[in-house]
Nucleic acid binder design. Structure first.
Lengths: 231, 231
DNA sequence: CCTGGAGAAATAATCGATCATTTTGACTGA
DNA sequence: TCAGTCAAAATGATCGATTATTTCTCCAGG
């Protein structure tokens, strides 16, 4: 067999899952919006089954909500949940960072520096259209945050942070779609990176918590409105 | 409309999901075992779709593993992952308990006491057959552990602990199925409860970590063997 | 004896028809 | 006007046939 590098063609269900996931995280599909199976299957030019499988995965993941015999909708948002989520992020990332600083070797340091560099030089919006966010930025932004905790020594911990990050990213994007955006957080990331490689544990945690909370504060004002369309 | 309390009949997919979930957590379906869709649909007397939807949920949840075009199998286990998981449990529960002790009112205290009482008086095995574990025990055991962190103030945190608990429970049950079982942890739970209502933060955490690690230690010896059948 | 490959069998994924449930909307009588 | 009722329409869930892919089996050539 020569086909070692044969790329596994993803199933329709997997493709649709990824597309829907992106739409939800990007805030294009609004919280509470009905996810009509027939409509979606037309949109994605597929049968019903792959769409249903994708939706089942999304609701197991918490990005959609299923009510038996009543179909699926996009997971609603709320101000209390945002606070709840932010709190959890602060707590869990604190441990991850603390342990990473304690255990991380130079590979870890370099990963942090590298991902911060990539984040800094990736434009936040697409060059031509000023309002369309650069999808690369989302990736490198997450990579940076995950790099901070990557040496903590527990994949379960890393997965948990990843989940929390995604949930928070949806809130962030919903705020952006609604017109609220924060000043460039590039400097904050830079500061966090510096403190991390300098192993200034308490400082990193202080900066990181402030980073999370500042975003949450900003998003909060917008969520109240979005929340109403949720019923 | 008079039907306020109308009980939502679960869909086939949801029923099968719950049944499979229990089988996996109980260790009846072994790690790495193939989950053949036609076989399962015969077992549960249903069509293919509900089974596939159930499996999609389970793999999104991490209890099964999907490979596109190659179907599903039960999530494998490994000694490193058990260590990883135990570490995460210690860390996350520590925060949950710390915050609960700080913020919990008397309602919280009473919930802890009550769930510990229920745990104490629930027999671990069914009365007649000595070897079949009592499904009630699993429920009240989880309830007790969740009660400890229930006042932490973040549902995301509580969900995270719940996930971690379930993953650990599978390891525990796999060990039991393989013949390894630990001495009655009833006393440990009692101690933890006492320390919690006495607000002895550091002691609770010490006892809880020891509780998690003792179980992991025991399970570890068995997992190595199960691990091999995983390929 | 081993390797590779063609074809057969098994299994997974998808489709669209069908069945079940919920939602909508028009109608009725207080 | 407003519940309440019932049928129609819309939507969700399920089924089994069909299609796509992988896995198995057996045989030829080295």
């Amino acid at each position: 067999m020569v086909n070692e590098a044969i790329e596994q063609r993803p199933t329709r269900a997997s493709s649709i899952y990824l597309l829907l996931r992106n739409e939800i995280l990007a805030g294009k599909l609004l919280p509470g919006a009905k996810l009509n199976i027939r409509d979606l299957s037309k949109t994605y030019a597929s049968g019903l089954s792959p769409v249903r499988e994708a939706l089942n995965r999304l609701s197991a993941e918490g990005l959609a909500l299923q009510a038996d015999n009543r179909g699926f909708k996009v997971q609603p948002v709320s101000v209390p949940e945002l606070a709840d989520l932010t709190q959890a992020r602060c707590w869990v990332n604190e441990i991850g960072v603390r342990e990473s600083i304690e255990k991380g070797n130079t590979d870890w340091e370099e990963a942090v520096i590298l991902s911060c560099h990539r984040l800094k030089r990736t434009p936040r919006f697409l060059p031509e259209q000023e309002m369309i966010p650069n999808p690369k930025w989302a990736t490198v932004h997450k990579d940076f945050h995950q790099s901070l905790i990557s040496a903590c020594g527990s994949n379960w911990m890393i997965d948990t942070c990843s989940r929390l990050f995604d949930a928070a990213e949806r809130y962030r994007n919903l705020a952006r779609v609604a017109g609220v955006s924060r000043s460039d957080p590039r400097d904050e990331h830079q500061e966090i990176m510096s403190a991390a490689v300098d192993r200034e544990t308490d400082l990193v945690i202080e900066l990181l918590n402030a980073h999370f909370m500042r975003t949450a504060q900003l998003v909060q004002t917008v969520v109240g409105e979005t929340e109403e369309n949720t019923a």
